[in-house]
Design a protein around this nucleic acid. Structure first.
Lengths: 107, 107
DNA sequence: TATAGTACTTACACATTTGTATGTCTTATT
DNA sequence: AATAAGACATACAAATGTGTAAGTACTATA
């Protein structure tokens, strides 16, 4: 079952879908933070320098829609929301570790 | 030397630099093709469905500027140009393999 | 003389992503 | 009565990315 190193419509599609998840400016930073465990919205905001509210919201929404992170809402006042990586999200770890490794060696 | 899972300005920068390389719509497809060896411009164009000239040129230029691919020009008529992955480029293989793997399992 | 082949370049326009600023909701505190 | 806290939403603008169409250079071939 060797790959033939041809970019077909199929695997190009897969690549481009994945870029929707990890290709954004902030996605990998968010996922990286969540590797260390559940975080609240405000904690994420503090942990990621220079991100703004709108972007954090938007990325979390995207990540949730791809089932990379899960949201848990507590009906407190003011509201509390926790974000946690799903199993699918946790499986991104080798990719992001590799990327970091590559970056450290090559940049 | 455990990482502390904090996105600093430094490592966020690394992530964002890497996205300039692998974050474009076509970059990973090009690199993927080049894993199988040196290709000419026209071969790349044929191997990657739906890419257009301008985008291929532009991505190759970016990849070359990051020293991911190298260009070799032959003074023939019409001109011949060969593109090959550099060592740095070849080191992207585990990343892209992981991404594919993740995609196959999760999408 | 016209056309084809190869590797581009340029100008323009449309689309998507990102950023900035401000507003909303509910209740407790000053 | 005004303010703060937490997690958003909304409107708008600026910045980037992507696509389309056409053109360039040189020479061999029909």
């Amino acid at each position: 079952m060797e790959s033939k190193n041809i970019v077909t419509s199929d695997n190009a599609c897969v690549l481009q879908e994945i870029l929707k998840v990890i290709g954004g400016k902030w996605s990998m930073s968010i996922v990286y933070i969540l590797f260390s465990g559940t975080h609240r919205f405000s904690q994420l905001e503090k942990s990621i320098p220079h991100i703004n509210t709108r972007m954090l919201i938007k990325e979390l929404k995207t990540l949730a829609s791809f089932d990379i992170v899960s949201r848990k809402v507590y009906a407190t006042v003011p509201p509390t929301v926790e974000y946690t990586l799903t199993e699918k999200g946790k499986m991104l770890k080798p990719i992001i570790d590799d990327i970091y490794e590559w970056g450290k060696v090559n940049m």
